[in-house]
Amino acid sequence: MIEPILLSLKVALIAVAIVAVLATLLARVLARRTFAGKNLLESCIILPMVLPPTVLGYGLLILLGKRGLLGRLLLDWFDWQIVFTWWAAIIAAAVVSFPLMYQSAKAAFASVDASLEQAARTLGSNEGRVFLRVTLPLAYPGLLAGLVLSFARALGEFGATLMVAGNIPGKTQTIPLAIYFAVETGDNILARNLVLVITGLSIAALFWLNLWSRKKIEIWQQGGDSNAQRIHS
């Protein structure tokens, strides 16, 4: 029972690490820009959230499979077959959790007052410092929410993972797959235990997020809504 749990955590953590960097950067780049086709591009970014996982799995197979567009190149150049390895599980988890991270990051960056970034610029900061000292700390609660949501989504990925990574115990069999095949083979105790584990993990992540982001924000906002403190000058 421990194998699928460790594998799931490993896959979800690596997928979220990749997604966190890529989706955050993409959201930052697109947040303050308008251009023709932006709407279409964003629709495509969000698409994995609404498509059935089997459609994504099929798409990934076409892309990464032995005769796939990218899969063939990887096989020819590096002799590396990616489907039915745990890398395929990571890619499947990353693809389905990407829109969640992107949406959260986009909302988080949009909530940062642009005049704060402008102020930092007039105070001599280059774009890197503006991002690290102003944008990122202010967008942080939203980014954290995105992280937790995409982690939970990556942890629960089933359909696309099954199609591109298969169900190889110890290699690609994550918790959701293990549950499915445990029920299939009538091993109800294993299924029940895994269900409890994944539910516990998800609840812990969400609970921690709620607790922590609230604390973080309270520090800046204390007194912000109390008019009593504002009267003296």
């Binding site: 105070l123 202010l138 800046w220």
Partner: peptide, 20 residues
């Protein structure tokens, strides 16, 4: 010349103080 190199002080309408 970009804003960061101009050394021009700017007091914004809503002050734009960094809340964090």
């Amino acid at each position: 010349v970009p804003a960061r190199s101009r050394r021009i002080g700017y007091v914004f309408q809503d002050y734009a103080l960094f809340p964090h």
